[in-house]
Design a protein around this nucleic acid. Structure first.
Lengths: 223, 223
DNA sequence: GTCTATAGATGGATAGAC
DNA sequence: GTCTATCCATCTATAGAC
């Protein structure tokens, strides 16, 4: 068996880092997609492993449990999204000598998730996953969402600094309204809007929608 | 047994309309509350019947299935809410000779659900049920939500008539934003806001919040 | 109409061979 | 690390006694 000698080490499949990484990636991709499309409660471990083309036991082996898998996806995606938002806020602050305008702050909050939702964006499904996690997530996800508001802190503080004339509770409420606008961009809600508008809103022009949203939100902050 | 003679008919319990109605009401109340608080997927028929103090089989006997029960609650509550909104829109139209202002239209859309959400309102739980149904509902609920937009039609038409200068797709998108503001008033999101604002938003003054929301939404429509 | 007991189906997790 | 077979918990729905 001369071929065996050509292999560096471990001729068996007990520890193949490449294959392991591929399996984990397939699981994560399938889980994210199925959950984003059908909801958390509707998707079983069997569905995920079948879709990923891996064996039934692999989720427990690689992630510990179904909930742990979903939590890891949740952490990864929210971290990515918050990083993008923080970077935009930071850049806006740099441009405006540390005091970005309300419009720049709102853009940093709205633009990243809106770009993700573009039909051609590879984070399109990930964004739906995040939105669903807000209402259907596991106890662990809800725990994080309720207590870890450090990311929003920066936006709230920036808005308060940009509008020192407003009572701070007014700023918080308005921020809450803007977040509602953002989180309402689920597939189901966009489809419903298409039905209501008889198709005139069925557009993939993210730039135009971004401008609409920021205009609306900025106007709400103007008074 | 002289007491038996005093009973009109049916001395057995086979057909007691009063008790039947009480059982159904107990089931509906328990189901609505548990689902509103814990989510659809987390609540079993066993949880509901235990909470209602009725036997396990009664949900299937009286409603056919768990899904049918939840669907009936959903239809009842959304019908109530939409009736209130339609009535307010109708009254606003009557006051403005058939052409209500944008503010009056938005108030008719926002005020009913916001009043329901008041801590002392008996529809407080019902509103959370409705909001949850939007993202976690069964197939039947989603079917209704996606296709039955007749209720929103009147609001969209009224807004289009109030702002004939705007492209209609702009009106639809802004209506979508307002709906997002409304649907974001879930317990979990309000709690999160309280954490972020360190308590300054923890208020039960529905009047003030209503004015905040209508002000924000109207400003978004102003341009 | 109510209630108990149970059927029937599904899902998460794990043991053990390879 | 992968995979099969299986355990065990849980749930909805229903049959049948009262």
């Amino acid at each position: 068996m001369p071929e065996a000698a050509a292999l560096p080490i471990a001729p068996d499949a007990s520890h193949d880092p490449e294959r392991e990484a591929a399996t984990k990636a397939a699981i994560v991709g399938a889980a994210e997609r199925l959950f984003a499309l059908h909801g958390f409660g509707e998707v079983s471990v069997r569905d995920i492993t079948a879709e990923a083309g891996v064996n039934l036991a692999s989720i427990n082996y690689h992630f510990g449990s179904k909930d742990a898998l979903l939590f890891e996806i949740f952490r990864r995606r929210t971290a990515e999204l918050n990083r993008e938002r923080a970077r935009m806020l930071h850049e806006a602050a740099a441009k405006h000598m540390g005091k970005p305008t309300v419009r720049a702050i709102l853009t940093a909050l709205i633009e990243p998730p809106l770009r993700w939702s573009a039909p051609t964006h590879d984070r399109r499904i990930a964004l739906q996953f995040i939105i669903r996690a807000r209402s259907e997530g596991t106890e662990a996800m809800r725990e994080v969402l309720s207590t870890d508001v450090s990311h929003l802190r920066r936006f709230a503080d920036a808005l308060i600094a940009a509008r020192p004339d407003l009572p701070i509770e007014a700023v918080y409420w308005r921020l809450h309204f803007v977040l509602g606008m953002i989180h309402n961009n689920r597939f189901a809600e966009l489809d419903r809007l298409d039905v209501l508008s008889e198709g005139v809103t069925r557009q993939s022009d993210i730039e135009a929608l971004l401008e609409r949203m920021v205009d609306f939100a900025e106007a709400g902050f103007a008074a």
